[in-house]
Amino acid sequence: MDYRIFRAINQFAGRYRLLDMMVIIFSQKVRYLFLFILIFMWFRDNSHKKITLYAIISAGVSMVLNKIIKLFYFKPRPFLNLGTHLLSPFPSKKNSSFPSKHTALAFAAATSVMFYKRFLGSMMYLSAILTGLSRIWMGQHYPLDILASSLLGSITSIVVKMTGWLWNPIIDRIIQAYHDYCSRKNHQGKSSN
Score class of each variant (00 low, 15 high):
Asn168His: 02
Gly189Leu: 15
Ser47Cys: 04
Val159Gly: 08
Ser122Ala: 14
Trp167Val: 02
Tyr125Val: 04
Phe79Trp: 11
Phe43Pro: 10
Gly14Glu: 07
Phe36Cys: 14
Asn81His: 13
Asn168Val: 08
Thr163Val: 06
Leu126Pro: 01
Pro89Leu: 07
Leu86Phe: 07
Arg44Trp: 14
Thr111Lys: 12
Tyr178Arg: 03
Arg44Glu: 13
Ala177Glu: 09
His102Lys: 05
Tyr32His: 15
Pro89Gln: 07
His187Ile: 13
Ile51Cys: 09
Asp145Gln: 04
Arg17Glu: 11
Ser149Lys: 02
Gly189Gln: 15
Met162Glu: 12
Leu18Gly: 10
Ser92Lys: 02
Asp2Cys: 05
Lys190Ser: 14
Arg184Trp: 13
Pro99Asp: 06
Pro91Met: 06
Phe90Leu: 03
Leu86Thr: 04
Leu18Asp: 10
Thr111Met: 13
Tyr178Ala: 09
Met138Leu: 13
Arg173Met: 04
Phe12Lys: 08
Thr163Pro: 02
Ser27His: 10
Tyr73Gly: 01
Ser127Trp: 02
Phe40Ile: 12
Asn193Cys: 09
Arg4Ile: 06
Met22His: 14
Pro91Asn: 04
His102Cys: 08
Val30Met: 15
Leu86Met: 09
Met123Phe: 14
Ile155Glu: 00
Trp165Thr: 01
Leu152Phe: 06
Asn193Glu: 09
Lys67Leu: 10
Lys101Asn: 14
Lys50Glu: 15
Leu19Cys: 15
Tyr32Ser: 12
Leu65His: 04
Tyr116Asn: 10
Leu105Ile: 15
Ser47Ile: 07
Leu147Thr: 11
Lys117Pro: 00
Ser100Trp: 01
Met1Pro: 06
Gln28Phe: 06
Ala148His: 04
Gly60Thr: 09
Ile155Cys: 01
Arg77Met: 05
Tyr54Trp: 14
Val159Arg: 07
Ser97Ala: 12
Val64His: 01
Tyr181Thr: 14
Leu80Ile: 12
Thr163Ala: 04
Gln140Pro: 00
Gly139Ser: 06
Tyr73Val: 12
Phe90His: 06
Ile5Cys: 08
Phe26Cys: 09
